[in-house]
Structures are given as C-alpha cells and as structure tokens.
Design a protein around this nucleic acid. Sequence first.
DNA 1: ATGGAAAATGGAGAATTTTTTCTTTTTTTC
DNA 2: GAAAAAAAGAAAAAATTCTCCATTTTCCAT
Lengths: 276, 276
Amino acid sequence: MPNTIRKKISRLKEGKLTKSQQKLVDYFETVDLKKVIYMSITDLAAATDVAEATVLRFCRSLGFNGYQEFRLNLAQGTMEADDDDVEGIGFIGEIESMYELAMENVRRGLDEAQVEEAIDMILSARTVCCFGVGHSYLAALELHNRLMMMGVVTFCERDTHLQNVLLASRGAEDLMIIFSVSGSSKDTVEAAELARAIGMKLLVITCYEKSPLSKYGDLVLAAAPMDSPMQPGTMTGKIMQLFTVDVLCTGMHNADRLRFDANYAKSSRATVGKLI
Amino acid sequence: MPNTIRKKISRLKEGKLTKSQQKLVDYFETVDLKKVIYMSITDLAAATDVAEATVLRFCRSLGFNGYQEFRLNLAQGTMEADDDDVEGIGFIGEIESMYELAMENVRRGLDEAQVEEAIDMILSARTVCCFGVGHSYLAALELHNRLMMMGVVTFCERDTHLQNVLLASRGAEDLMIIFSVSGSSKDTVEAAELARAIGMKLLVITCYEKSPLSKYGDLVLAAAPMDSPMQPGTMTGKIMQLFTVDVLCTGMHNADRLRFDANYAKSSRATVGKLI
DNA sequence: ATGGAAAATGGAGAATTTTTTCTTTTTTTC
DNA sequence: GAAAAAAAGAAAAAATTCTCCATTTTCCAT
C-alpha cells in the first residue's frame, strides 16, 4: 500500500519541525495509520496532546485544504491534492492494474471445492500430462515445473508427434491437464478427444466456462469472464493461467506441507546444482 | 481497484430497493466514486435529491455506523465494518498481494530511461536471442513470443548444443537478452561470457543489480530487491520477469504503434490459423 | 377499491465536528 | 534582554452529521 502521505511527511521532515508537528509525526509513526483514519480531529488532537487548530494547521502544511481532505487521502493511500510527483514509466500502472484485474477474475471464477477437487485429481493420478498450445504452452510448462518440484511424475511435451508417443502408454489412472484461454483451438480440442478415447482423466483450465473444450473436461477451472474481449496472446490470459497454476500448487503444498516442503527444498538445492 | 462497497451494494440490490435507495445506487453507478468521497452528506443528499437522513439510513443499511464510516471505506476500497464475508480460497489473497508486491518492486527498480534504452537496443538489433535457464526459461520464451508477434527476428533456444550453433553465426549487430532472477547461475554467466567474446550486445534482466551476471551486461534491468530473500523457482521471481517483459514490449509497441499494431493483428489472426 | 398497519422519507433542530479568529506563549534575532 | 516573528491554544463561529418526530408512501387484508 504505497501511501503518499508518508512521502509528504518525510518531505516536511527535511525542514525543521516545530514541537507540535513533531508530536504529530511521532504519533503517525508509532500508531497504525488505519486507526488514525477513524479518528476525528478532536480525537487526534487529544491523542497527540495539541490543540485542534494545530492539527488543522499541520494538515494544511501538508498541502490539504482541511482535516477531511487529509483524512480521506490517508484512507485512499493516494494523493489528489497535488499530483506533481507522478513518477516512473507512464503506462506501467495500467499494466499493473490489468494484472490485478486478471487475478481478481480468477479469484471470482474459482471456488475452494473445485480447487480441492483438482488437487485430488492431481494427487491421485499416476502421471500428469501438461498440455498447452501456442501461448498457453507457458502455463503448461510452469505447471509441469512446479509439479516436478513437488515430486509428481509429470510430462510436458510440445511436439505433437511426441505427444502421441507419450499418450500411447497412458490410461485411466493418468491425468491430462489442458490449458487454453479461449478453450476453442483445434489442437487442444483434439488432445481432449484423444484423452477421452484413452480413458484418461481430464482437467481443463480456461477463461471461458462455456467453451467447446469445457464439455470434455471431468473438471473445468474457469476464471470469471473479463469485461472486455481478450485478444489472443495477450498477457492478461497468461497471467490468469499462471495465477491459477500458482493457486493450485500452493493449495497442493498446503494439503501436505510435510511431504512437499521436503521435496521443494531438495528441488531448490537441485536448481543450484546441489543434488545431494 | 477492487472496491468492497460495490459488493455490498450489489448484495443490497438483490433484495428490493426503495425509491431513494434506487436514486442513490443510480448515482453511484453513473458518477466516479472518487468524486463522491469528497462530498459531504449534505452535498450527496442534494445531488441525489433525497434527504440527508435518507442518505444516512442508506449507509447504515450497508452496514456502516454513519456517513463518515461509509465515506472512509469508500476511500479505502476495503471493509472494516464487518468482515464476516471472507470468501473464496483461503490463501488466494496472499498470492495476489505477493504478485502485487513483485510488480511494485519491478516498478521501483526500472526507470523510463533504461526501458527506452532497452527498447532501442531491441529495435536496432539485427536479431535477438532470448536466453533463460531453468525457471527463467519461461520469461525468455514469453519475450521470444511477444517479439515474434511484433515481427522482430528472434530466437529462443533451450538446448545448449543448439544454443552454440545459434551463437556461431551471431555478431556485433545482434542482441542477447538473458534472464536470471539471481543473476549468478553458472550457465547464464557462461552464456554472457560467450556473448561478450562474440561481440554481441547484451541486455541482462535480473532481480539483483549487483549480481555476477550484471557486470557483463551493456544494460541491466534490475527490479528493486524484495524484502525477504527469494527462494529459487518461486512464482514471485517469474512474475517479476514476465512483468518486465510486458513493460518492455508494451513500451516497444507504444514507440511505433502503426507498425506493431499491424504486425500484432496479423499474429493474432495467425494464432487462430488464418495466415492471410 | 379502501382502510389501516408498516415502512420509508423528509425536515427541523440538537449534537458533534471542523474551521476561523483572536489571544497567549514560545522562539528567534538583533 | 527586548522586540519581532512564529507557533500554539482557547473559544466562538460555521459547517456537518445525526436524532427525533411528523408526513408520505407502500402494501396487504378486507
């Protein structure tokens, strides 16, 4: 929570503070600012042992018109009073809030029961095959890596010929996890059909609950639909997929901490070349 | 900006709304909530043409003690009044805020001049080679895909033998982009040394400015260090890398919209199989 | 339809909070 | 150490929020 009032205060501190300004600053630094929000100017004056007028003057010296404005900006964590300090790359904030929106939609789309069911499917599978075509390969690969770190027997094959080789020896005890943002690309649907034919369990991770792919899945994890239509290959879709992977793997990890902590630790050491 | 008051209001809407409640809800839906924050209960009553007491009752029906509490929660975007509605998967919020922290650190670490310089390096390169070992392969692949969508000649090779084959015909006009969270893994450092020997330009994307890898880079994009030490293979590091990729590519896109919009459109059509 | 009970709304004024103004105290400077 | 300047406090004024009660509207049963 980047709070710009802190910045204002530290800027003020660069000059000399008067006795009562010091009292106020001290108070803000020792007390949770969230508490201050709910205090009236009278309360705050009493708590810091200065006059109400002094508190008001302090707010003004910070650049606000009055106590209310100060208090509201404290609550917002952002400044409206003056915005002469926009910093960093112009569009970076937009990307950030897009990611946040993506995550929010995943959160809205998933529910605990589904996630638990998905985790059960993974834990009870003999082997897991992570599939994703094109831009969705990223998420498939990430899931594969994460599962591998937890000691799950997992495959992630890009080459369609080798995919068939892989599937040739799969069966009812194995699980296929397919990623597809749109849930309608030809290749993924074919893979799903194949999984069905073989008798594999199928978990579909998508952003559209009503996609063609969804009807093949034994379980479908779908994010809530975004307000605006998603262009293929956008980062938003990938963040949604990766976030889902993270939720799933964190959930798995929580389900059996003892076992997975050990595996994770071993994997972490392994990535820096220490195998034993 | 996930605002929980919206949630409260929509829950209220499920029941029947009275005439003045409807007026208020309408007003909140048409007007920027940021503006409402700075209105007194008197202003709001006047704007919605209801009595002050009615506004107060509305706030109370939303679960707040009074107008101030309502207004402050509107500003905060979070609820303090009652938190009996924690919903969804227990740990999902923690993952979300971790991602947000990751993005914040990237934003703090990058500055506009660096990003522009990186974009220049990409645009002026004959070809680009995206490298990432282990968990960093994900970001390398994503950058490769994005650049490809913009029509840049790019490579992303995982196999170390083929990497050497690729590098054999690179030279001073080519650019290598290396991803490494820690910036200290043996393989990446070797790749950087090789790039240097060949005379390639080198862009390093890492999370530790002072890493061994950094000293090889013509330009180093480093996120601000996280508060807690990062375990290898964590999602945080990957999100930081992917976010950086997105910032870079969005920046490129903005730099020459006309050209990249066209390429992107073609690429999007291509991903659904329409080549012409 | 219509009377009546319950719910919703508005208005006036009381209570609280915020702001202004003026006085007193403290600090600074010569 | 005294005068000027700055800061802080006290109290009154203004504004805002809240309470209470009268009025209107809605809804249901007759």
